[in-house]
């Protein structure tokens, strides 16, 4: 059958073009023009070892660090090999119990009033590197106390790491938790 032969030949040709040539060309160009971004946006400590990626969140639970959002990744939180959300529905008791526990653990650290939603809900990727500005601000007293530094100092660090909406209207205002905690280490 002529059509089958044509189909196979065209399939092979298009596969080579879109499956090999295209990604190869993009890789070469990307590595040449944007070497840092194309390789994962790693950030480094003073001694030159990688401290993580600016785009991928890390787990923190000690009082002296800013805490990120809860992560639902499998086995342990912020596991980049198992990205994903909790997929718990809004009326599931599991969700209510988990959030209630998280709210309590924040209240135990002395937070007054209401807790920002992003701080007690799991992100979609499980790797969200950001928290809202509000979520950073409510944690300042705990961190200042644990590190024995004035709250003002921590607050100015948060302000310095504040990222507004891109181009003024895209996305949402936020703070990168890993970058902020690395800066805390240098205080």
């Amino acid at each position: 059958m002529k059509e089958i032969k044509t189909g196979i030949l065209l399939f092979v040709a298009l596969s080579l073009l879109t499956g090999i040539l295209y990604p190869a060309a993009v890789t070469v160009l990307a590595q040449a023009i944007f070497p840092k971004q194309s390789s994962g946006s790693l950030i480094y400590k003073v001694d030159g070892t990688p401290a993580g990626s600016a785009l991928i969140g890390q787990p923190f639970s000690e009082p002296k660090y800013f805490w990120p959002r809860p992560s639902a990744t499998a086995v342990f939180p912020y596991n980049p090999l198992a990205s994903g959300g909790s997929n718990i529905g809004p009326t599931n008791n599991d969700l209510i119990t988990k959030i209630s526990d998280r709210v309590k653990s924040f209240q135990d650290t002395g937070i007054q009033g209401q807790v920002p939603a992003d701080l007690v809900t799991a992100s979609g990727s499980g790797l969200d590197p950001h928290i809202s500005l509000e979520a950073a601000l409510v944690q300042i007293p705990r961190i200042a106390k644990a590190r024995r530094v004035p709250e003002e100092k921590v607050r100015s660090l948060v302000q310095a790491h504040f990222e507004d909406r891109q181009l003024g209207f895209l996305g949402a205002p936020r703070v990168n938790v890993l970058k902020l905690n690395l800066a805390l280490e240098k205080l």
Partner: peptide, 10 residues
């Protein structure tokens, strides 16, 4: 409702 959403997208 922020469950399952990312902070940066809002």
């Amino acid at each position: 409702n922020m469950e399952g959403k990312e902070v940066r997208f809002g």
